[in-house]
Design a protein around this nucleic acid. Structure first.
Length: 155
DNA sequence: GCCAACGTTGGC
DNA sequence: GCCAACGTTGGC
């Protein structure tokens, strides 16, 4: 089992929205970066745990945890001409964008802000805090996972 | 294959 | 809203 961090803009889709989906979960659609796609397609597996990270908002940070409930999911938005994620170059017999489905697990007792992650000595190697990081899917080590969970009384 | 122009991400 | 740091596109 592996650990990940998925970014989302809470104005568009937040941890609360994911919670509202319940055990049905949600397809993590809209990832249109090949490096992120490759991780979703090749490495993210069922039962992996995911930090849901809120970006582009007042207090960026880890808001909660989800679980991967299905892998190898074809992102349906690539075939939807009305979607901003429509990709006319992707063909149904050779879909370009593969993702996973996740389901809500919990909110952190207290969200862990990007500022507190940056301030923690044990988290300096996280790709999240690396300069110029823009990937929306990032691997998290077990040690980093536990460290974040124990910040400010979580876990 | 090079690289300038352009678009996007995302913290601040 | 600003802007640094990327990724992508397309002319050549």
């Amino acid at each position: 089992m592996s650990y990940w961090l998925f970014k989302t803009e809470p104005d568009t889709f937040s941890i609360d929205d994911l919670k509202a989906r319940g055990t049905t979960g949600e397809i993590w659609d809209g990832v249109r970066n090949y490096q992120a796609r490759n991780m979703l397609r090749d490495q993210v597996q069922v039962n992996d745990r995911v930090f849901i990270y809120h970006s582009n908002c007042e207090t960026p940070g880890v808001a909660g945890i989800a679980r991967v409930i299905e892998s190898g999911v074809v992102d349906p938005m690539q075939f939807n001409p009305d979607s901003k994620y429509f990709d006319p170059a992707s063909k149904p017999d050779a879909p370009r964008w593969i993702t996973v489905k996740v389901a809500y697990e919990l909110h952190l007792a207290k969200p862990v802000s990007l500022a507190s992650i940056k301030a923690h000595p044990a988290l300096q190697d996280m790709q999240l805090v690396k300069r110029g990081n823009r990937l929306s899917i990032l691997p998290v080590s077990e040690e980093q996972w536990e460290t974040i969970l124990h910040i400010e009384g979580n876990g």
